[in-house]
Simulated scan of single mutants.
Amino acid sequence: MIFDDLVTTTKAMQDLQKKTAIKNNKAMQDNADTKYRLLLTQANHFVDVMVYLYTDLSVPKNHEILMSISELMNVLEQIVASGLASPDGIINADNTFKTLQSSMKKEWSKQYADLTSATVSTLEAIRGIDPDNVGRCLQKFNLQRIGTWM
């Protein structure tokens, strides 16, 4: 009788441990899935911006950045290859993405200056005609130059 109660209690405790582990792992997996979706959305937005810059604005292509984007997309695909998003893989991919963004920001500041230099020069030349409006326009150009490109 006592032995049967002990076996039943032990089995109930083991079941509880299994359920607790599943619940904890589910919460961790849900968190990893959320981070993955966010990273994937950011990467998608980044690609959209790159397409716009390279096709619509005809900004000279940086093949190193394009290769890095391609590698990042392959990494993002591999992270979920097993069906579940790998938390360590997400952290590594996020670091890679941040490095890629930083590289593009440096590249963009150079490109932006090249793209807007003629317009800024024209505005500087006509500043005497309407200093307030021209000043606001120049300020907007400056804010875009020093601000983030994405």
Rank of each mutant, 00 (worst) to 15 (best):
L16A: 12
L16R: 08
K18S: 15
K19C: 12
K19N: 14
T20C: 14
A21P: 01
A21V: 14
I22E: 08
I22A: 15
I22P: 03
K23P: 11
N24Y: 15
N25C: 11
K26M: 10
K26I: 11
Q29H: 02
A32G: 15
D33W: 02
D33K: 08
L38T: 03
L39C: 02
L39K: 02
L39V: 04
L40A: 15
L40E: 08
T41L: 08
N44T: 12
D48K: 04
V49R: 03
M50D: 00
V51M: 12
Y52L: 10
Y54A: 08
Y54I: 05
Y54H: 06
T55E: 00
T55Q: 08
D56I: 15
L57M: 11
V59R: 08
K61L: 05
N62Q: 14
E64L: 05
S68D: 07
S68M: 04
I69F: 02
S70V: 13
E71Y: 06
L76K: 01
L76M: 06
L76N: 04
E77F: 00
E77N: 09
Q78I: 01
Q78T: 01
Q78W: 00
I79G: 03
S82N: 02
G83S: 06
L84E: 12
L84D: 04
A85M: 01
A85G: 00
S86Q: 11
P87C: 04
D88N: 03
G89D: 00
G89T: 01
I90N: 01
N92R: 13
A93D: 05
F97G: 03
F97E: 02
F97V: 10
T99P: 03
T99V: 15
L100I: 13
Q101C: 12
S102K: 01
S103E: 13
S103M: 15
K105E: 14
S109H: 08
S109V: 09
S109N: 03
K110Q: 00
K110P: 00
Q111A: 14
Q111M: 12
A113K: 00
A113R: 05
D114W: 07
L115C: 06
L115T: 11
L115V: 08
T116E: 05
S117I: 14
S117H: 07
A118F: 10
A118W: 08
A118I: 09
T119L: 09
T122V: 09
E124G: 02
